[in-house]
Amino acid sequence: QGDIVVALYPYDGIHPDDLSFKKGEKMKVLEEHGEWWKAKSLLTKKEGFIPSNYVAKLN
């Protein structure tokens, strides 16, 4: 089961498979690959890669 993270900063995706998000948006982490994680937005239901240093895990 994936962790839920919250965006600390907004992110505008650079690549087509990036997931753009707004500050405060919550996402479910699907896979962790070093600095880039695959996640699904709980708001938009879209999936893509996010920079892990832009988010914090919720406990």
Rank of each mutant, 00 (worst) to 15 (best):
L42T: 05
G13S: 11
K46I: 07
P16Q: 10
N59F: 09
L58P: 07
E32V: 15
P10N: 15
N59I: 13
I4W: 08
E32N: 13
L8C: 11
H33N: 12
G48Q: 00
K40F: 11
V5D: 00
H15M: 08
S52D: 05
L43W: 14
G2R: 09
Y11A: 01
N53V: 08
L58R: 04
N59W: 08
M27T: 00
P10R: 12
I50E: 01
K28A: 10
P10T: 13
A39T: 04
E32A: 14
N59D: 13
K40Q: 14
W36I: 10
Y9L: 09
A7P: 01
L19R: 01
M27A: 01
E47Y: 07
I4P: 02
A56L: 11
E32I: 15
F49H: 05
Y9H: 09
S20E: 06
L43Y: 10
K22D: 08
P51M: 05
E31L: 08
N53R: 14
K45F: 15
K57L: 12
E35F: 15
F21M: 04
G2K: 09
G2L: 10
K40Y: 12
A7W: 00
E32S: 13
E47D: 06
E31F: 09
E35H: 15
Y54W: 06
G13C: 05
N53K: 12
H33A: 09
P10K: 12
W36M: 10
D18W: 10
V5G: 02
H15N: 12
K45A: 13
L58G: 06
E25R: 01
Q1I: 15
L42V: 06
N59M: 11
P16S: 09
S52H: 09
E47N: 06
K57F: 14
D12L: 11
G24F: 06
S41M: 04
I14T: 12
F21P: 00
G48K: 01
G34M: 05
L19E: 01
W36D: 03
L8D: 02
K57Y: 14
W37V: 11
L30N: 03
P51I: 03
L19D: 00
L30W: 05
K46N: 09
S52G: 08
H15V: 05
S41V: 04
K23Y: 07
K22T: 10
L43M: 10
V29I: 15
W37Y: 15
F49C: 12
I50M: 03
P10H: 13
N59S: 14
V55K: 01
T44M: 02
Y9M: 11
F49R: 13
D12S: 12
W36N: 06
I14S: 09
E31K: 08
K45T: 10
Y11D: 00
V5A: 07
S41R: 02
K23L: 08
H15Y: 13
I4D: 04
M27N: 01
A39F: 01
W36S: 06
Y54Q: 05
M27C: 02
L42Y: 06
V5N: 00
L8Q: 05
K45M: 14
K40I: 14
V55L: 04
P10G: 11
E47V: 15
A7Q: 00
P51R: 05
K23S: 07
L58K: 05
K38P: 03
A56M: 14
L8G: 02
L42I: 08
L58N: 05
S41E: 02
W37R: 07
S20W: 04
H33Y: 12
N53E: 10
E25I: 01
L8R: 05
G2H: 12
K23C: 12
V5I: 07
I50L: 05
V55T: 05
L43F: 09
E31A: 11
D3G: 11
V55S: 01
L19V: 02
A7C: 04
W37L: 15
S52W: 08
A56K: 14
W37C: 10
P51G: 02
F21T: 00
S52E: 05
P10C: 12
L19M: 06
L19I: 05
E47L: 07
V6S: 04
V55I: 06
I50F: 06
N53I: 08
G24S: 04
G24W: 07
N53M: 09
I14V: 14
A56F: 10
K26I: 15
Y9T: 06
M27Q: 00
I50Y: 01
S52I: 09
P10E: 11
W37M: 15
K38L: 15
K38I: 12
Y9E: 07
Y9P: 00
L8E: 03
I50H: 00
K40D: 02
E31D: 09
D17S: 12
I4E: 05
P51W: 04
Y54G: 04
V55M: 05
E31W: 10
N53Q: 11
G48W: 00
L43R: 12
G2Y: 13
L19S: 00
L42A: 03
V29F: 04
G48Y: 02
E32D: 15
K22L: 11
K45R: 11
K23M: 09
S41P: 00
L58I: 13
T44I: 02
H15F: 11
P51D: 04
Y11L: 03
E32P: 08
P16F: 08
Y54C: 09
V6A: 05
D18E: 15
L43I: 11
S52Q: 11
A7V: 02
I4T: 07
D12F: 13
G2A: 11
P51K: 05
F49A: 05
H33V: 10
P16D: 10
L42P: 02
V55H: 02
D3V: 15
Y54A: 09
G2C: 15
E35M: 12
G34P: 05
P16V: 10
G34Q: 05
G2V: 09
G2Q: 10
I14A: 10
G24I: 01
N59A: 12
N53H: 13
V6W: 06
S41Y: 02
S52V: 10
W36T: 09
K46D: 08
K28M: 15
T44A: 03
E31T: 08
W37E: 03
V5R: 02
P16H: 08
P51C: 06
F49Y: 12
Y9F: 12
G24N: 07
P16G: 09
V6N: 02
A39L: 06
W36A: 05
E47A: 07
L42K: 03
D18F: 13
K22E: 09
K22P: 03
K40C: 12
K45G: 15
D17Y: 12
W37P: 06
V6D: 02
V5P: 00
W36E: 05
P16T: 08
E35K: 13
D12T: 14
D17G: 15
L19C: 03
D12V: 14
Y54T: 04
K22C: 11
K46W: 05
S52M: 11
E32F: 14
K22W: 04
Y11C: 05
K28F: 13
L43P: 03
H15R: 13
I4G: 02
G2W: 13
W36H: 07
S20C: 08
E35D: 13
Q1N: 12
L42S: 03
P16R: 08
I14E: 09
G34R: 05
P16C: 11
L19N: 01
G24A: 04
I4Q: 04
K57A: 09
G24T: 02
W36P: 04
G34E: 06
M27P: 00
T44C: 03
L58S: 07
K22S: 10
K38M: 13
K40S: 09
K38A: 05
V29T: 03
D3R: 13
E47H: 06
K23H: 06
K26Y: 15
V5Y: 14
P10D: 15
D3C: 15
G24Y: 06
L8I: 09
S20Q: 07
Y11M: 03
I50D: 01
H15C: 14
G24R: 03
E25Q: 04
P51Q: 04
L58V: 13
F21D: 01
D17A: 10
L58W: 12
K26Q: 12
I14K: 13
K40R: 14
K46Y: 06
V5Q: 02
G24H: 06
E35P: 12
K38Q: 07
L30H: 03
G13R: 06
E32L: 14
A56C: 15
D17I: 06
L30E: 04
Y9W: 12
W36G: 03
K28W: 14
Y9N: 05
Y54R: 09
M27L: 11
L8M: 08
A56Y: 12
M27E: 01
K46P: 01
A56S: 11
A39E: 01
